[in-house]
């Protein structure tokens, strides 16, 4: 009974998301909604590793780009349908995640962050240089999954992906898996000492995250109809995935949706209103978030609510917790 009540709100929300094209007929608005959901899916995928497991990856463009190129190259060389290409994207991304995880999870803290950044850059440079396979910076055309005038099928597809990704985090928050990840984030040594297989859970989280990211990458490629390495494999892609989740609220279920809404809509509005300044505002927003509400918008709201209500068991904790290494203390 409680489970049903617990699920009622998410189901209603999912239904509302799916109902959007019934109300929004204008293709431009629908396209903006598609972008919101693209970034929601990416933010949610990132959130699994970056938010719940606390492993701040700045290399997720690798999975996004591999997804995009899986669809593009299978269609180009073997004439595969975009659907098969999408399946390929997911199939390739999981072992890639296992390989990247095997390397980067040996690194801790900032070295993990820099390691993911470095690996994604190496991949971008290789794709750029391997012209015989990828056409390098000349780019490659990508077939559409839904040929035809209507954007609605694109919307339904990415809406389902977003619901699946957000739903995964919703399920995680209620499962042992999510609990283990949070424990690893808060204190890996302690988690391991009570028998949590940290390496396995972190790798699993990365593989799930990579699968969603690659799927979205393939979708995005098909939506753009053309890709080149700088579009799908560059550092800003990685950064934006992280920023969406962080501004919305790291380690919260709906944080990525809030973050994507804020950033995509702000970008559309700023682009029209402030022209040259909109990326500057983006940087300032990130700084303000970290300084004044490090848990992001939803994290902050939850934190406030929690201060009022009776203390609850901590799962989605805030991120102002102190440093794991070094003996520095508050001074002055």
């Amino acid at each position: 009974m409680t489970r049903w009540r617990e699920a009622a709100i998410p189901l209603a929300l999912a239904a509302a998301v799916l109902a959007v094209p019934l109300v929004v007929k204008n293709p431009y608005h629908l396209n903006v909604a598609i972008l919101v959901l693209v970034w929601t899916t990416l933010g949610a995928a990132w959130n699994i590793v970056g938010g719940y497991a606390g492993q701040l990856s700045l290399g997720h463009a690798a999975f996004f780009g591999i997804g995009a190129y899986s669809l593009a190259l299978t269609a180009h060389y073997w004439g595969w349908s975009p659907w098969a290409g999408m399946a390929m994207a997911v199939a390739v991304s999981v072992p890639l995640a296992a390989a990247i995880g095997a390397i980067t999870f040996r690194l801790r803290g900032p070295y993990f962050v820099l390691g993911t950044l470095a690996l994604a850059e190496v991949l971008r440079l290789v794709v750029l240089a391997w012209r015989d396979l990828t056409y390098g910076a000349a780019g490659i055309m990508v077939p559409e999954i839904f040929p035809g005038l209507s954007r609605a099928p694109y919307y339904y597809f990415i809406a389902l992906a977003a619901i699946a990704a957000v739903g995964t985090t919703w399920w995680m928050e209620r499962s042992g898996f999510g609990y283990y990840l949070t424990a690893i984030r808060e204190d890996q040594e302690t988690a391991e000492s009570i028998g949590v297989n940290a390496a396995w859970y972190k790798n699993l989280a990365l593989m799930i995250s990579a699968a969603f990211t690659a799927l979205t990458g393939a979708f995005y490629a098909s939506h753009l109809m053309f890709i080149e390495p700088d579009i799908v494999l560059s550092e800003p892609v990685s950064v934006q995935m992280a920023v969406v989740a962080i501004i919305g609220g790291r380690g919260t279920v709906l944080g990525p949706l809030v973050g994507a809404l804020l950033l995509v809509l702000a970008s559309e509005i700023f682009r029209a209103q402030f022209q040259q300044a909109h990326l500057l505002i983006y940087g300032l927003l990130l700084m303000l978030t970290i300084l004044f509400m490090p848990g992001g918008v939803l994290g902050e709201i939850q934190h406030r609510l929690r201060l009022r209500a009776a203390p609850r068991p901590v799962i989605g904790t805030t991120f102002s917790s102190s440093h794991e290494s070094s003996g520095q203390r508050e001074v002055g």
Binding site: G109, L279, G283, M287, I290, P294, H323
Partner: peptide, 17 residues
Amino acid sequence: HASHMNQILLTLGLSVA
């Protein structure tokens, strides 16, 4: 004195700005 993650994100924001 906050986590490395917040340092990374703050300085990343500073860099973008």
